[in-house]
């Protein structure tokens, strides 16, 4: 797509630096802090204008928390969000940020006020932000996402199907004319046939309004289809970021590889025979030392338990970033020299 080719050369639209969110867990009679969930721990990434960044990972990896941090629904502990050169805080208010970054949630029913007509729901944001003609905006956007405003504007959420409701949620997000839309598992709850319709719609809207998407999903096929780059998270950290074809053809991090090979094969004659990983993802309350993946990693060595790998480029100027000792010749990992070939 031409939009992304030009985008890569220019400055990023959104840049997130060292985002951190720890949730304290209180317990006991006195409500003392007993543990900390390291939901998001030092996440950094950049998104170019017009680009779609896919974020994948398993439950507890922090992808949804990252989404909520991006629009300030959860307050970050540390980190910077820079949008269009303006830093959140000194240069830009939260309200301004929320106009430029919008979000679509997974549960299409829970994300609509059941007592509000969908016309009012779509218009609400524009009204709050003081944009002109909120009702007209809402009607235009409803028509744009394929819902005839004359038939649907006066209806309530429970009168719509899941796919229609998710269209309403998309229209609502777009009513603020945002630059970035965060789609948090936005198509995951839909039936496959409806999901395809909504994906087509999202692709059209991206083109028409020049949107930038952050697309969070556990469905790798969908992420691969819609994203320009994929970011893989594990226990609150970024383990790999790369353009979609690079990561698909040559995943560098052992976790990414496991994730890809855990996908159903779709070939009855060639079914998966060995699970790529054993056990469940560990609890983010008490993440393992060193590399957080070392407890499940087939390639783990002594150094992985001690030293925390940093996210670095695979080669000079490479757009492929990975946080793994295997790809760092200086790490001291016995197989580091073989690197990507393993």
């Amino acid at each position: 797509m031409s939009a992304t080719d030009t985008a890569r050369s220019t400055a990023p639209l959104l840049s997130v630096r060292e985002l951190k969110k720890h949730f304290p867990i209180h317990g006991g009679i006195l409500g003392r802090q007993q543990a900390v969930v390291q939901a998001v721990d030092g996440v950094s990434f950049e998104v170019a204008a017009g680009e779609t960044l896919g974020i994948v990972g398993e439950s507890g990896c922090g992808k949804s928390t990252t989404a909520k941090l991006l629009i300030g629904l959860t307050q970050m502990d540390e980190g910077d969000i820079v949008l269009d050169g303006r830093r959140l805080g000194p240069d830009m208010s939260l309200k301004a940020l929320r106009r430029d970054i919008q979000m679509v949630f997974q549960d299409s029913y829970a994300s609509l006020n059941p007592r509000m007509t969908i016309g009012d729901s779509v218009a609400f944001g524009a009204r709050v932000q003081g944009l002109d003609d909120p009702q007209g905006r809402a009607r235009r956007l409803m028509a744009r996402v394929g819902l005839d405003p004359d038939r649907f504007a006066g209806r309530y959420p429970h009168e719509l199907s899941g796919g229609q409701r998710q269209r309403v949620n998309i229209a609502r997000a777009l009513a603020m004319s945002p630059k970035v839309v965060v789609l948090d598992e936005a198509v995951s709850a839909l039936d496959k046939s409806v999901e395809a319709q909504v994906l087509n719609l999202l692709a059209d809207l991206r083109e028409e309004f020049g949107l930038t998407y952050i697309f969070i999903s556990h469905d790798l096929n969908v992420v691969r289809y819609i994203s320009d780059r994929i970011l893989v998270m594990y226990l609150g950290e970024v383990v790999e970021v790369a353009p979609v074809d690079d990561i698909w053809n040559a995943p560098a991090h052992p976790y990414t590889r496991s994730l890809f090979s855990a996908m159903p094969s779709m070939d009855p004659d060639n079914r998966t025979t060995k699970p790529p990983l054993s056990g469940d993802p560990p609890n983010p309350i008490d993440p393992p030392s060193g590399c957080r993946f070392h407890t499940r990693c087939p390639m783990a060595s002594e150094v992985c338990k001690r030293k925390h790998p940093v996210l670095g480029r695979m080669g000079q100027g490479s757009p492929h970033w990975v946080a793994c000792h295997l790809h760092d010749p200086a790490s001291g990992h016995p197989k580091a020299a073989e690197g990507a070939s393993v």
């Binding site: 797509m1 395809a196 319709q197 994906l199 692709a203 096929n221 691969r224 289809y225 779709m266």
Partner: peptide
């Protein structure tokens, strides 16, 4: 088709 297994990026989906 909607399973998106090996669907080329950017092609329009044949949605039901």
């Amino acid at each position: 088709a909607a399973n998106l297994h090996d669907v080329a990026k950017g092609t329009r989906l044949d949605a039901i």
